[in-house]
């Protein structure tokens, strides 16, 4: 079943073409990495899929519907460090739950979620947390509150320590076992070796390469660089 489909997707920002007639299709249960040089439009593509931005041309759909309609079936982690600094960790989790019109979280549920990301339930403001702690909390707010069919992560390893990355890998494996589809924009391809089933390389506004990675023995960054170089050579010739 196709979870995400895009056809001829284009996006202009102030006359600058970010995406140029991009087409892609992601099926249920896939774990897809979106890799690209800086500024190539990874985040823009994710925002278009989520309905947080509007395409200049072309069509994109999630679960066969216009983006935004099925937002409750999608979990999203944004690239920026986005937490509410004046609230406690528990307050941030409550905001996330209530915003999704889920029941307010009780104390044991909050404890469980915070323990899962190695945080303690205290009255301390999140503004005083370290970068890594904020990122763990943000991941919990994005992914652990609401079970979803599609999970979109934008640079999920930003700010995470080694333990955090390992925890994230375990979480992704857990999510895939229950049939969730993952799409993540990342520069840290090697961190996800053996977890990612497919890699999309975005360059010059289009999908420059699309290859299976589940059985890859070479480091994923190497495969990415080869694919990118091959695509650029093809364009030049």
């Amino acid at each position: 079943m196709e979870i995400i489909q895009a056809k001829g997707l284009s996006k202009n920002y102030h006359g600058r073409m970010i995406l140029d007639g991009l087409s892609l299709s992601i099926n249920s249960g896939e774990v897809v990495a979106l890799a690209a040089p800086n500024g190539a439009g990874k985040t823009t593509l994710l925002r278009l899929i989520l309905g947080l931005a509007h395409p200049t041309a072309g069509l994109v759909s999630t679960f066969g519907n216009t983006p935004g309609i099925d937002h409750q079936r999608i979990n999203y982690l944004c690239e920026e460090l986005a937490v509410f600094p004046h609230n406690s960790a528990a307050g941030n989790l409550q905001i996330s739950a209530l915003s999704r019109t889920r029941p307010a979280l009780d104390s044991p549920s909050i404890d469980t979620i915070l323990r899962a990301v190695s945080l303690k339930n205290s009255r301390r403001s999140v503004g005083r947390f370290s970068l890594g702690m904020k990122r763990r909390l943000q991941l919990a707010m994005a992914v652990l509150i609401n079970p979803a069919d599609l999970i979109i992560l934008d640079e999920p390893t930003n700010g995470l320590d080694i333990d955090g990355v390992l925890w994230l890998l375990a979480l992704i494996k857990d999510l895939t076992t229950v049939g969730a589809t993952l799409l993540m924009a990342t520069h840290s391809l090697n961190d996800f070796q053996g977890v990612i089933s497919r890699c999309l390389v975005l360059d010059r506004g289009q999908i420059a390469a699309d290859f299976r990675t589940i059985d890859a023995e070479a480091p994923l960054t190497e495969l990415y660089q080869q694919a990118l170089a091959g695509s650029r050579a093809g364009v030049q010739s």
């Binding site: 989520l50 935004g68 986005a82 999704r100």
Partner: peptide
């Protein structure tokens, strides 16, 4: 102010937020 607009709008849906 907290760069949470994208996530908050996604959680609730723009109209509901």
């Amino acid at each position: 102010g907290f760069q949470t607009a994208g996530m908050a709008a996604h959680w609730a849906g723009r109209g509901r937020m």
